[in-house]
């Protein structure tokens, strides 16, 4: 069974003359336990696919299946939110400025109907490498990396199977990026997670993912193994040019 199935997915914004086709006929499958990457430049539609899966981009056609169940429209049921969670790009924008870490996690746990919230909050913080002393801080009292850890803890609160990662480290310093990527690697192993990760950074995707799709102007131009990336055996001209631009000279 596949964790995520994307079949002939089209996503668009606006209507008639203002219509912008953000994603055109995208098709890929992510196996359970796999880590799959979406690479492309800004405007290539890679993040839009994540937003369509989560219902944040309501206008789409084609097929999206999550663990064998087909999704419809923009409405998602409780079961979906327990299966799929998302980590956003900018940790400075993804936490409510007036809520403490404790409030963020407690509310999430409450929404997922969890019991024993107090102990769970502490365990979540421990899981993402934050100590108890971070529990009652406001976002402005945290660094970018710490915020992203809180965002990851929030995504893990409902014990999902699939994590959608939307450029989770692009707003962070490289040393912090390494910490967060390591954390994501460990969490994937510990919680048997499936990742769908979006990034413009080929080395990051190469590091994190088993397979990846290269996107350009809303279309997937090539799906390949990460090893193809390393051995420089990308077939499509665009993938090669992206690769050439990212490899250290």
């Amino acid at each position: 069974m596949t964790a995520l199935g994307i079949d002939n997915l089209n996503v668009w914004f606006g209507t008639d003359r203002d219509r912008v086709d953000a994603v055109k006929a995208a098709r890929f499958d992510v196996a359970i336990g796999e880590s799959f990457g979406l690479v492309g430049e800004s405007g290539s539609g890679k993040s839009t696919i994540l937003r369509a899966i989560t219902g944040l981009a309501p206008t789409w056609s084609g097929g999206i299946t999550v663990e064998g169940k087909a999704l419809q429209g923009a409405k998602r049921d409780r079961e979906f939110y327990k299966t799929v969670q998302m980590v956003f790009q900018d940790p400075y924008a993804s936490l409510h400025p007036r809520h403490t870490v404790d409030q963020v996690l407690s509310e999430t746990l409450h929404l997922h109907g969890m019991a024993d919230i107090d102990a769970r909050v502490e365990r979540l913080l421990h899981d993402v490498g934050l100590g108890k002393r971070f529990r009652f801080r406001y976002p402005h009292q945290l660094s970018g990396g710490q915020r992203q850890r809180v965002a990851i803890a929030r995504a893990l609160a409902g014990e999902p199977d699939i994590l959608l990662l939307d450029e989770p480290t692009s707003a962070l310093d490289v040393s912090v990026q390494a910490e967060i990527l390591n954390l994501l690697t460990d969490l994937r192993e510990e919680h048997k997670l499936t990742y769908l990760m979006v990034s413009h950074d080929l080395p990051v995707i190469g590091h994190m993912c088993d397979r990846l799709a290269v996107m350009k102007d809303g279309e997937i131009v090539e799906i390949m193994q990460s090893d193809d990336l390393r051995n420089n055996t990308a077939k499509h001209a665009y993938s090669q040019s992206l690769l050439a631009a990212s490899v250290v000279g």
């Binding site: 490289v174 080929l202 590091h207």
Partner: peptide, 18 residues
């Protein structure tokens, strides 16, 4: 800083942390 960057030519499970 240099070592904490992921590199395509040197795959490894964990990145070096500063």
């Amino acid at each position: 800083l240099l070592n904490s960057l992921p590199r395509l030519d040197q795959p490894r499970k964990h990145l070096e942390v500063l």
